[in-house]
Amino acid sequence: MESFQQAFDLLISLDKELLQIIGVTLRMSFFSTTISCLLGLPLGALIGTRSFRGKSFLKKLIHTLMGLPPVVAGLFVYVLFTHYGPFGSLNLLFTVKVMVIAQVILITPIVIGLSSSFIEGTSKPVIDTARGLGLSKAKTVGLCLSEGRSSLLSVVLSAFGRSIAEVGAVSIVGGNIQWKTRVMTTAIMLETNKGKFSFALALGIILLLIGFAVNALASFIVKEPADD
């Protein structure tokens, strides 16, 4: 109860640092989810609708990458962007941009894997019907997206959920720097390490509330008729 009270107090006090952490968290999750979906959804559609040599191997590879440990992704990106790494000259380490890059590496396989499974399983009758009617490819894709919008929303929300809850990669490449790269999860980890369990729990409750609000907003935007 103390944690709930503290979470409520933190929110209504409009604590500047908390608001800044929420802002960084949402900015990072928005960009990593958007980029992952822009890359992953078309690739998922291609894999889901086409037959080609090596498809089975590619699917196994994607399914393996879906379980990529965040610390491994974080370490990989750290090596790439460290001062002596191939992209060191960009000076991106310990910025929100590199946190987004690490998350895109983590999330894109999830988007590809989930969307290709959905498209493979449920869009076949839509594609058959559309092709049978002689509709253009663009119109067929439009119909698949329209018919599967609730499933696609689940894919996007899974990607967002993975992003907002991720801690391993962002703490390695972001460094959990106060007023700069600290996000909700790294803040929770810090407060837990300091022994401030109640405060850490309060942050956790706020994180859950943010997740719930984003889910509710997305479900409202992609509204499904009740009798469909």
């Binding site: 009758p125 839509v126 019907t129 559309a130 092709r131 049978g132 119909l143 018919e147 008729p225």
Partner: peptide, 21 residues
């Protein structure tokens, strides 16, 4: 044009199901 044995119902009403063409 081809009409499959398993008819598919697009989301929406009957008119929308025809005007997709």
């Amino acid at each position: 044009l081809y009409m499959p044995q398993q008819s598919y119902a697009f989301k929406g009403d009957l008119v929308r199901n025809i005007t997709v063409t």
